[in-house]
């Protein structure tokens, strides 16, 4: 278990803000100068950003399970990075098809689309009652709010 307390969240939010800044810079400078390598680095920052929010959202009572950190969180970032790398390296290239698809098309569909489904949707289904929202966690939340007036 990894503790994601208030201090850690401060750091993660700072990292997220920095990633957003870099994404804007990469889109701006990379777009204006047609610098595709900088844009590619911006794409990698997007993958990092996904991981940062995932880490904060997947905690339960300030604890993040190590297995959840590996799958789905880090794997999600890795799949995205792989997809962006393939797309960047095969952009505009006439190439042999893989399973009826251009390598860039294949990378986007398999690693980004399918990969993201595996790391967000499939993990959500399989881990819902143990890691996303365990029953005892919700019950203890309900017990805590049962004794208080609704806030307006």
């Amino acid at each position: 278990m990894i503790t994601i307390g208030d201090k850690a969240r401060d750091i993660l939010m700072f990292i997220a803000a920095f990633c957003w800044f870099f994404v804007i810079y990469a889109s701006w400078a990379g777009g204006a100068n047609k610098d595709h390598q900088l844009i590619y680095f911006g794409l990698l920052a997007c993958a990092a950003l996904t991981v940062v929010y995932y880490m904060m959202g997947a905690t339960s009572n300030q604890k993040l399970s190590t297995s959840v950190l590996v799958w789905p969180i880090l794997l999600n970032g890795i799949f995205q990075a792989v997809a962006f790398t393939i797309v960047y390296n095969t952009k505009g290239v006439k190439a042999d098809f893989i399973l009826g698809m251009h390598p860039g098309f294949f990378g986007a569909m398999v690693f980004f689309w399918l990969g993201n489904f595996v790391t967000s949707t499939l993990s959500y289904i399989l881990l819902f009652s143990t890691k996303v929202l365990p029953e005892d966690e919700w019950e203890s939340f309900m017990k805590e709010v049962a004794g208080q007036q609704k806030i307006h």
């Binding site: 990469a26 889109s27 777009g31 794409l43 996904t50 505009g92 698809m101």
Partner: peptide, 26 residues
């Protein structure tokens, strides 16, 4: 048409992939 119509980036400027991939996922 040609290769840019079947690759993974398409014919729009490359930086749009950032906007579309991230803004529509997060």
């Amino acid at each position: 048409f040609g290769p840019t119509f079947v690759d993974g980036a398409g014919a729009m400027p490359f930086q749009l992939v950032i906007a579309f991939a991230m803004i529509f996922f997060i």
